[in-house]
Design a protein around this nucleic acid. Structure first.
Length: 108
DNA sequence: CTCTTGACTGAGG
DNA sequence: GCCTCAGCCAAGA
């Protein structure tokens, strides 16, 4: 095992902590890790998540838009996974996003 | 080394 | 609410 890239590993760890039927944003994870302005790095980490067991479909941008669905295998795979968890998604837009949003800090 | 791109966000108009 | 600009940092060419 090589050295864990702290930042990336943290992202994967938090992503796995997201409860079913919930979602969070890249910025929320970045902020939790102390890199509030590095939300892009979270997205990049998700790009590498292809080799990890990370539910990247539960991570969306700040408005609940499935910006990353394009990186998934198909075109509706990400939406399918979210709907499978009880999340309503219309036109790549999560409905009731503010209600199913999960804060990694513990919903303070 | 430099330049561009990108799964983002916040501030300003 | 929308559009534009700037900041952020890593990877690829």
């Amino acid at each position: 095992m090589e050295k864990s890239d702290n930042f990336f590993e943290k992202v994967y760890e938090v992503a796995r902590l997201i409860p079913h039927g919930r979602v969070t944003s890249y910025g929320a994870i970045a902020t939790y890790l102390g890199a509030a302005r590095s939300a892009r790095m979270v997205g990049w980490a998700m790009n590498n998540s292809g080799a990890k067991n990370v539910p990247a479909h539960r991570v969306v941008n700040r408005i609940g838009l499935l910006t990353g669905k394009q990186h998934f295998d198909g075109t509706n795979l990400m939406q399918q996974l979210l709907e499978s968890e009880g999340i309503v998604v219309i036109e790549n837009q999560i409905q009731d996003f503010d209600k199913i949003f999960w804060n990694p800090s513990g919903e303070l």
